[in-house]
Amino acid sequence: MTKVSMVVNGKTVSGEVEGRTLLVQFLRDGLGLTGTHVGCDTSQCGACTVHVDGQAVKSCTVFALDVAGAQVRTIEGMANPDGSLSTLQQAFQDHHGLQCGFCTPGMVMASAALLAENPTPTEAEVRHHLEGNLCRCTGYHNIVKAVLAASGQDVSAPLAAE
């Protein structure tokens, strides 16, 4: 076991991990941050997406030791300081961008990373960016709509295909 420290959601944390302990295991089991989910074992589904130093990372693909000293942000750190939902989180609720909620933390983290990089993405850009995050409930319709809305774009008219 090795000691690892990092900053998670603004707080310095540390814990004992094995070399093989994944970041997602450290977050869930070590820190009790169970908002980050595990939906597969091949880094395909994106339910475990978190931010490491501002980049969206699938936390099942990195070892906890690999992010020693890094700034990590999880879904638990996404709300506004007063506890209210952030613009992006609120857009997911307003546009019914979630159903069972299991992929949602990963979707929010991946979408937040997109918007940080590209503040007004097109529909195609949103769909392409979320290609690494699987959702089985929504058919993606309302997720894409929520991300476009969070970017300040008008989604009040019926969204046309193509």
Binding site: T34, G35, T74, I75, M78, L85, Q89, G101, T104, P105
Partner: peptide, 10 residues
């Protein structure tokens, strides 16, 4: 139910 799912509290 969205409030808990969107904040990692599910």
């Amino acid at each position: 139910e969205d409030l808990r799912f969107l904040t990692g509290k599910g």
